[in-house]
Design a binder for these strands. Structure first.
Lengths: 165, 165
DNA sequence: CAAATAGGTTGCGTAACAAAACCAAATTGA
DNA sequence: TCAATTTGGTTTTGTTACGCAACCTATTTG
């Protein structure tokens, strides 16, 4: 039956994976965040095959994550630009990068570093914070049905201390 | 030639997708964060087929994101538990959820809500912050080669204002 | 105006995935 | 205590997604 889609799952994580879950999609968004705009640049920087790139770009435009802009002088020549919706994926990309830096590469072996140009220092790690801005323990985090909830769901993260963070 | 793997790409985002990029993997981690531990619970809660679930769990155990613990009384019966490496994926899951809540479901239609049990309020959105804890503009964010960099790479996010955030 | 580049499309082969059937061991319930 | 059910899978079969190479037209560069 081919791949199952998550659209009917009534879970925000599933929804985002339905939109972003294809293999190349998030890497294309990463490239776009780095400033890549043209088809051939994406192709070269990622080493992706043309047909897959064409499909993914089309999908990203349909999802309004990228915008296809004609910048040709005497005909058509395209740029793919991030929309606000697309640029907002930076927290997703950055959380993936930070996780991998911590657990796959390890401290001191990061291939790239994201810095604050005003200080030259790497930006601090993303973390679940409370309203005062302090990193939170998972013990104080619970999941509740939201306004768009279907069944009576009331669960709690991790039963016990998943991490002490 | 089947699917290309990103392992040789020297990019942290690509690395994490190589580990997490399969369709069901992050949803399994989400379930684990919610407290699901047994094979049959994952199966029922996700609606995933058994063979794929078995493969994904095996892979997650190999990657040390889950740990397989024998909890049988008179034989073998297993629990899958998050390791610290796995629990640290919460920022990835949460950034996906928040993005989808903002852009797919929309304000006021979230299927679930993640709250601080001490206040009862939803946790604040994840954001790229500077050392003072203030949300940053992308104009002040740059990407530099890290200690594990291969070529001379020096790029900057988005050329221009991707967002003003 | 020729050559190179951009931006694709098409066809073909392989790998990943889904559903259903099947199965042995452990657990539950009467 | 023993039958029924649940757990935790494996196998088989078919479909879909992906990768590669070849090809093509329009645009831009020299």
């Amino acid at each position: 039956m081919g791949r199952k889609r998550f659209a009917d799952m009534n879970c925000s994580v599933a929804q985002s994976l339905d939109v972003l879950g294809d293999w190349w999609t998030l890497l294309i968004v990463r490239e776009a965040l780095f400033g890549t705009r043209t088809f051939s640049r994406f192709e070269r920087n990622l080493g992706i095959s043309k047909n897959i790139l064409a499909l993914r770009l089309e999908n990203l435009v349909d999802q309004e994550i990228l915008r296809r802009v004609d910048v040709g002088q005497h005909g058509t020549r395209f740029h793919y630009e991030l929309t606000a919706k697309g640029a907002d994926l930076i927290t997703v990309i950055e959380s993936l990068r930070q996780w991998s830096d911590r657990w796959v590469y390890g401290e001191g072996k990061e291939p790239v570093r994201i810095v604050d140009t005003r200080t030259g220092n790497p930006i601090p790690p993303l973390a679940i914070r409370d309203e005062a801005g302090e990193p939170m323990s998972m013990r104080n985090v619970a999941i509740e049905p939201g306004p768009g909830a279907a069944p009576a769901t009331r669960r709690r993260f991790g039963k016990r201390d998943a991490t002490t963070t």
